[in-house]
Design a protein around this nucleic acid. Structure first.
Lengths: 345, 345
DNA sequence: TTGTATGCGTTATCAC
DNA sequence: GTGATAACGCATACAA
């Protein structure tokens, strides 16, 4: 295997009979070059198939041309949608997107710090890394935008509203006569779950209902939810409604309910969050809260670029969500679909 | 905003009272350093919060520590699963993953070439870029692995079997008495679609059935399929079965059928491909071909690393798929689920 | 055990 | 218009 070394700027300069400065000028279309010289250089570039080395350029320009995004993991439609929205903006900017999933590893912080040194800016989702690490990066001058969580220390964040729609959804269930609503999700695992739990509490307080039970701490995972739900719904004093922190959890709960011979929503009402594709196809169709996942990624990227370009730190954003009432909660309006909550806050 | 420049290796060396060589040695844990010196250097690194600059390192090491993956787009569970499998391997290797979606842009080739100069190797899916560009990259010495397509010019590829399971699925429909099976998918749009169409043809030939109609060229998109399916199923001489090139297409077809008041599978049988999450939740449950999406990404990454490390070009791989027979095709066995096709070829 | 010096491939600032 | 040449930040052969 004859490793023909990739031609560098010197090879082009030699072939064209000019200096590397001129090659660079032609290549980047900066500065003035005589038409005939330009022609020669272009021919040489073409002939050698020259393309500037990324590392060399990055070093000289003091920018990598890439930005990074960090997730806890990549499973499920949510992350892929966010990535999609982000990627689109990134390409529009003529940059590249580096993605990293920490999978709850011990080394997570280390991996993120490493990534930070290969990009011009970073988007970090939820609690993938400790706040302390985020602060370190911020102080180091790495442009940062947080995702799906509140900002802090002046670091901007893009997120979707949680508390208000969670309260609205809970209120809907309460008004339908449910007195024992269980919350499935782990407030400690993500800011999203925490805020939805808060909304659940708020609704109970607003309705002057007794303080409800503790949350059932399940991960955003169908399998895990299936287990936990089987346990919760198997009890004699089982709840009459499950407010699930996302759709995957709701799916697991739905499966558990059906296996236990429980009718949904007759015996137990179930709601989710995100409005993933399955939500409207499953039977009964899932009542849920739709959040603009693509937009979440897109806006985060836009804010990041704004920050990189102007140097000023933009304010964060809270994107509106939409309550989607379907059959699974037993409170469906006549047409089985309803919208509310858009623009709250 | 006081832009404190990030400390470089010289700053650390100064503070520790050593040369940059020693700092590098300590930092990379290469070479021998006196315990006391090491201690001083580590303290300096800690104090300054030093982390080596990616571009500088990449330039000196002649490797970026990143690899890239190129997709046509990022929508749907398929791509996100492939990325997930890939990302896992990449992190295991201590590298970063760059992703790029071409979205059928004119500039696609340009974007990919640009990406190629920022990574140590590239994975390219299907027909995202012309073969000619792939060849250029290969000749330039960029380690390449193709995804979801056949290899060529000695470039390795990882893909899942298509022809055999498509033929098996078609055969199943033929044996169930279907005489007019339409193929929904565009063989020209992707190698996967092309091979599935080929399997469809093979099955007809093997059964000595008349040459079937031309494929209905719909994209891998639910909405687009919905339109096309409405048209196809609205005809008086509508087909009695639809072999859809993937599950999204099948979903669109299913919706169209139901809107037209057609029973599935009674009036029209429908099959998909991929076995995405919705497939088993929708009603009727979708008969489909499960392909190991995560594994596809993971194996491609592994092959790429093998290539990068050893320099030898590994052979490509064809991963087994699994026929999942559910209700939508009307040929379900007693338990409504069946498996076959694994390991064919 | 440590330091010096060179190279990695660009960009950009000066002279000319 | 064009060409030397100095950064850019790091790794490493070679000296000491």
């Amino acid at each position: 295997m004859q490793r023909t070394p990739r031609p560098n700027i010197y090879a082009v300069a030699d072939l064209a009979g000019v200096s590397i400065a001129t090659v660079s000028r032609v290549q980047r279309d900066t500065g003035v070059v005589a038409p005939r010289t330009r022609e020669r250089v272009l021919r040489a570039i073409e002939e050698l198939g020259y393309r500037p080395n990324g590392a060399g350029r990055a070093l000289a320009e003091q920018r990598t041309g890439a930005i990074g995004i960090v997730f806890p993991d990549l499973s499920g439609p949510y992350y892929s949608e966010v990535i999609g929205g982000c990627e689109e903006q990134v390409v529009l900017e003529g940059r590249s997107l580096l993605i990293l999933a920490t999978h709850g590893r011990e080394r997570a912080a280390e991996l993120v710090l490493d990534l930070a040194d290969r990009v011009d800016g970073l988007m970090v989702m939820g609690r993938t890394i400790p706040d302390e690490v985020v602060r370190t990066l911020d102080r180091d001058g790495v442009p940062l935008v947080l995702l799906a969580r509140a900002g802090f220390d002046g670091i901007p964040a893009v997120r979707a509203e949680n508390v208000a729609p969670a309260a609205a959804l809970t209120g809907l269930l309460l008004r339908s006569g449910h007195e024992d609503i269980a919350f499935l999700g782990d407030p400690a695992s993500s800011p999203d779950a925490a805020e939805r739990w808060q909304g659940y509490l708020d609704a109970h307080a607003a309705a002057r209902r007794p303080a409800p039970a503790e949350p059932v701490p399940v991960l955003f995972d169908e399998g895990h939810s299936h287990e936990a739900s089987t346990c919760v719904l198997g009890r004699a004093d089982r709840p009459t409604a499950l407010l699930c922190a996302n759709d995957e959890i709701a799916l697991g709960a739905l499966a558990a309910a059906q296996e236990l011979g429980l009718e949904v929503p007759g015996d137990v009402a179930i709601t989710g969050w995100d409005d993933i594709q399955v939500a409207r196809y499953i039977s009964p169709a899932l009542t849920t809260v739709r959040q603009p996942m693509r937009l979440l990624g897109a806006r985060a990227a836009e804010l990041l670029f704004q920050r990189i370009h102007t140097g000023v730190t933009p304010a964060g954003e809270v994107l509106p969500t939409e309550l989607v009432v379907r059959a699974s909660c037993g409170c469906a309006s006549t047409d089985g679909s309803n919208e509310t909550g858009g623009g709250v806050r």
